[in-house]
Amino acid sequence: MKAQFENLVDEAKSINTQTNNRLEDLENTKTLLNGEAKKIKSQVMSRAYLLANLYFKNQVSDELFHKKRIHLQTGIYKKINEYFDAITYTTIRHIDFDEAMNYINSIELVDLPFNYLKLTDKQKEVAEKNQEKVITLFSVDNREIG
């Protein structure tokens, strides 16, 4: 009788270990749900808009603002993909969704790689075409660029 009980206990422990291993494997491999991915995308877009507003210290054309916002959006995606060791934001683990949303909200301009803090050649072309004098948060001595 005692041996049967010990066998049952061992079997229960084995089942528990297998279940825990499968659950852990599932947590580590299940990526974002479609709705979560849409929320991440929306949050990235909102953050890029806010950062673009901080980036420019003077009024610029919608065209230039849009180009910089998209540029910053790309930088934010780069940061979150690196932080969560993901190929794309849609491959972030499901269990990391809340942390990802918080991380996106914490990203500041200075957290982005240096090339995102400058105007790209295309952005400079747009500024020149629109005869804009551009002053950015990172302009040296707030000199004009363009």
Rank of each mutant, 00 (worst) to 15 (best):
K2M: 03
K2H: 03
Q4F: 00
E6H: 02
A12H: 12
K13M: 13
K13W: 13
K13S: 13
I15F: 14
Q18T: 11
T19M: 15
N20M: 15
R22P: 00
E24P: 03
E24D: 15
L26D: 09
E27C: 08
T31H: 00
L32E: 04
A37T: 07
K38S: 01
I40L: 10
K41A: 02
Q43W: 02
R47K: 15
R47I: 03
Y49M: 05
A52H: 04
L54T: 08
L54C: 08
N58G: 13
N58W: 13
E63N: 03
E63Q: 06
E63H: 00
L64F: 02
F65M: 07
H66C: 08
H66W: 08
K67A: 13
H71E: 02
Q73A: 12
Q73G: 12
T74D: 15
N81L: 03
Y83P: 00
F84R: 03
D85W: 00
D85S: 04
T90N: 06
T91W: 01
T91L: 00
I95E: 11
D96S: 12
F97G: 01
E99H: 04
Y103V: 00
Y103F: 09
Y103H: 07
I104T: 05
N105K: 15
S106A: 05
D111V: 11
P113R: 05
Y116K: 08
K118M: 07
L119T: 08
K124N: 11
A127M: 11
E128G: 01
E128Y: 13
K129Q: 05
N130M: 07
E132W: 14
E132K: 08
E132M: 10
K133A: 14
K133N: 14
V134P: 13
I135F: 10
L137N: 13
S139C: 14
E144V: 09
I145V: 09
I145F: 05
G146R: 12
